[in-house]
Amino acid sequence: MNHLRQQTQRRALIVDSDAESRAGLGEQLLALNLDLTAVSTTESLIEQLLTAEFEIVLIDLNLGQSDQAMDSIELARGSGQIAPIVVMATHLPEAKQTRLRSLGCDVLRKPFDPATLTTLLEQCLQASRPERSPTTANPAILGDDEQRALQRAFIEMLNSGYLVDLRSALEQGSASQAQAVLHKLKGSAGSFGYHRLGTLAASADGLLRQGYPLQAVMMQIDPVIAEAERLQQLKY
């Protein structure tokens, strides 16, 4: 396993059996100021996905074990791994592409222009990063009473607004309405310091904005609802 380090906490994972390809992908990711972990097998893939957090994951499915790699992705998603995943392949049957997209993966056909990959990476990174509102106070620098008041206010918004609107959009099967709610939620959650909820919402929002059907994004939306419900149970 190779680790290419820079002074940053943002991490990326590369899974590619070809050393030269790993090096080339690594250069592109280093240019985006990411701290890299590079592995060459599907066994290492699942180990990394289940034990570490990444800003983005790149996987070459031409490993001779594409089914095993997809099983690993599905297991990781079910275990809470929310990082954007870009899958690169020379050829994939439509059924496998559909399965990957249902797991929230972007599929990039090889060969591809490096600029195409860079653009996709930038889009994925932007989608996974919760927005912060410059007009909202940062709970980390407030007193205890002020912080609790802000937290209560956000939980009230979850109860009376975001969750109601999101569930309504899902019941109606409206991807556009769901995307609008998730977009607002990712910014608000980040502003109030709930970065996990913001990141989960950003992941689902990004996939819907890229045109994935609502049903295919449900694996990313369900954790949003679960995290929101968990926050509702906290005492402030």
Rank of each mutant, 00 (worst) to 15 (best):
Ala137Asn: 08
Ala178Tyr: 03
Ala180Gly: 06
Phe154Leu: 06
Val87Thr: 11
Ile141His: 13
Arg132Trp: 01
Arg129Asn: 12
Ser133Asp: 14
Tyr194Asn: 07
Thr118Ile: 07
Arg109Met: 09
Met70Trp: 06
Asp113Phe: 03
Glu131Ile: 05
Met88Lys: 13
Ser102Ile: 01
Leu92His: 02
Glu171Gly: 02
Thr90Cys: 04
Gln179Glu: 15
Leu117Glu: 06
Ser133Arg: 11
Ala137Val: 04
Ala189Glu: 08
Ala153Phe: 14
Phe192Ser: 10
His195Arg: 14
Arg152Trp: 07
Ser72Asp: 12
Leu103Thr: 15
Ser72Ile: 08
Ala89Tyr: 08
Ala180Pro: 00
Ala69Val: 07
Glu171Trp: 07
Met70Gly: 03
Arg196Ser: 10
Arg167Asn: 15
His91Pro: 00
Arg101Met: 10
Ala95Arg: 03
Glu94Lys: 11
Ile141Gln: 13
Ile155Lys: 10
Gln123Trp: 04
Tyr194Gly: 01
Ala95Gly: 00
Ala175Lys: 04
Leu125Phe: 08
Pro114Tyr: 10
Pro111Cys: 06
Asp71Asn: 14
Phe112His: 14
Gly187Arg: 02
Gln172Pro: 00
Ser133Glu: 05
Glu146Leu: 12
Ser160Ile: 01
Tyr162Leu: 04
Pro130Cys: 01
Glu171Gln: 15
Ala69Gly: 11
Arg132His: 05
Gly187His: 02
Ala127Leu: 02
Met157Lys: 14
Ala69Leu: 10
Glu122His: 00
Pro130Ser: 01
Asp165Cys: 02
Ser102Phe: 04
Ala95Cys: 00
Arg109Gln: 14
Phe112Met: 05
Ile82Asn: 13
